[in-house]
């Protein structure tokens, strides 16, 4: 792929006490692609996301976004630079309405200076447009905590969209969804790319990722054990070994 390198990690490492959760990961994500990251449970996928988005400081290594070092920056600064994320375990603001949840994210451009003291009413329309796109418009005024899990996953993505990022990190967005909902999710993720958003998609099940990702990186015990197109990865002996060796060989 000849396109621009959007996100690069070099030698990225994270130790939790004696446990090395992420081990010298070199990852290059190009603009415009859907980049899958797969690996068995505990492989270090979520930790990798936390390192990229500023929730954890790397023990070693660096993260570069659009040519700029971002490791060590706090999470909200990284959002401003253009990286949004979702959480593996959904975290809606349960007491706010679905619409307000999206508004909170849309407000990121208003959280500096006197912005917090300006009314949000004029931006409702933008938030509604996003809710329409993810199919939540008719539930806009319900408390977010009352949504079923499938809709809460959509809300996670809607909020990330409202941040208008260049790069979106989705942590197991298909977890807990029915087959039918996964079909809808695929459309949603492809829609993100059409909007010009580059996507990094974490999954521990292979099938979903195989379908929509151009490139896949496979992690095991914190290390990159394979990288390539879905076909290349699926036939890689190291990958087969890692998946057969682990309890959840479901993919």
């Amino acid at each position: 792929m000849g396109s621009e390198e959007l996100l690069v990690t070099e030698g990225l490492t994270k130790d939790f006490g004696g446990l090395r959760a992420v081990d010298h990961v070199d990852l290059t994500v190009h603009r415009g692609e859907i980049h899958g990251i797969i690996g068995p449970n505990g492989a270090g996928k979520t930790t990798l996301f936390n390192l990229i988005t500023g929730y954890l400081r790397p023990t070693e290594g660096k993260v570069t976004f659009k040519g700029r070092r971002i490791d060590g920056l706090p999470p909200h600064r990284i959002v401003y630079l253009g990286i949004a994320r979702t959480f593996q375990i959904v975290r809606p603001f349960t007491e706010l309405s679905v619409l307000e949840n999206v508004l909170v994210a849309w407000g990121h451009r208003h959280y500096g200076g006197i912005g917090p003291f300006l009314p949000y009413a004029s931006e409702r329309r933008h938030a509604m447009e996003i809710l329409e796109e993810v199919g939540l418009a008719d539930r806009a005024h319900l408390p977010a905590g009352t949504l079923p899990i499938g809709y809460q996953r959509r809300l996670e993505i809607a909020r990330a969209m409202a941040l208008e990022p260049e790069l979106m990190l989705l942590d197991e967005p298909a977890a807990g969804l029915t087959e039918e909902e996964i079909v809808g999710l695929k459309g949603l993720v492809r829609g993100l790319v059409e909007r010009g958003i580059t996507v990094i998609l974490v999954e521990h099940r292979m099938t979903f990722v195989m379908d929509i990702c151009g490139v896949i990186t496979v992690l095991d015990h914190g290390r990159v054990i394979a990288e390539g197109t879905p076909e290349e990865v699926a036939h890689d002996p190291a990958v087969i070994e890692a998946y057969l060796g682990s309890a959840d060989a479901a993919g």
Binding site: T53, H76, V79, F87, R91, F93
Partner: peptide, 21 residues
């Protein structure tokens, strides 16, 4: 205002609020 939304978000879930900038 945006400030009220941000306060409610930060009050309920700091981790998620940070991800909203």
């Amino acid at each position: 205002t945006w400030g009220r939304l941000a306060m409610e978000a930060a009050g309920e879930d700091e981790t998620a609020a940070k991800a909203m900038g």
